[in-house]
Design a protein around this nucleic acid. Structure first.
Lengths: 133, 133
DNA sequence: ATTTGACCTGGAGTGCACTCCAGGTCGTAG
DNA sequence: CTACGACCTGGAGTGCACTCCAGGTCAAAT
């Protein structure tokens, strides 16, 4: 199957402008064109876009995604380097998750504090206007 | 205790420029000054900076951090809104963790694929130049 | 007394990742 | 046949979060 840029945008969750931008900066090989010169994205293109958006979600900078994209074009000889990039990113994602988990704990603690304050207000000053009104 | 801007930067992990920037955009109340007009950060300032950097780590935009900072200045009456902001951020962090976990799974799958390819190369073509040379 | 180094200010500059725009070309629908 | 909508191009503009700079002050060290 082949998809118009609008359809590719819908399916990838990227904007039309971003698709053209990714092509300009060589994240994406130029897709095929229809007879009128309009882009016709293949399923392969969509698959690659899907993976790219995953990499983006992990916070990989465009620079590194470009490197990965460029290696992909150099075939099987580059597989080792590509794997190394992914292993590296895997490590950074795991670190990020741990870091966020730590922040989650702090947020929980702060939120609980606010709840304790609410309880205090209710307990120490019973029958105040906050309760009835 | 009170700390020079260099010391506050070291302790908070922010740069000196970022500390002044945060003050300019009202993330941080202007700290005390010493006799020579230099900033003298208090332990309270440092504590708030620590929490700010946690919020930043969670990806909270400066706009929201400013809102939280501004509410803090309005005392206990703003506690409800402050708590709501944190609860909201808690949710967004939990979502982000789940999203990253999904990406981690995809990375693992891709990495395993590369490993399978490596195995294949070794198994199917034994004694080839890649192995000896 | 002067040099050094840390600090000050207001404002300009940077890098990233888009996002928007003007002006133009197609192909189908009325 | 013309009007419309989707698409095209090169290039400019945007928002965010810093980061850097020039020119100046101040206190301690030589």
């Amino acid at each position: 199957m082949s998809y118009s840029i609008a359809e590719a945008a819908r399916r990838s969750g990227l904007s039309i402008d971003t698709l053209r931008y990714y092509e300009r900066i060589k994240l994406l090989d130029p897709p095929a064109r229809d007879t009128a010169g309009r882009r016709a994205y293949s399923d392969d293109d969509l698959g690659w876009l899907g993976f790219l958006t995953k990499l983006r979600t992990t916070g990989m900078p465009i620079k590194s995604m470009r490197e990965y994209a460029s290696l992909r074009r150099h075939g099987v000889a580059s597989a080792g380097r590509r794997k190394a990039l992914l292993v590296d990113q895997r490590r950074s994602v795991a670190e990020r998750i741990a870091e966020l988990q730590g922040c989650l704990d702090i947020l929980d603690y702060k939120i609980e504090n606010y709840e304790r304050v609410e309880q205090k207000v209710l307990g120490i000053e019973p029958g105040r206007e906050e309760i009835s009104a």
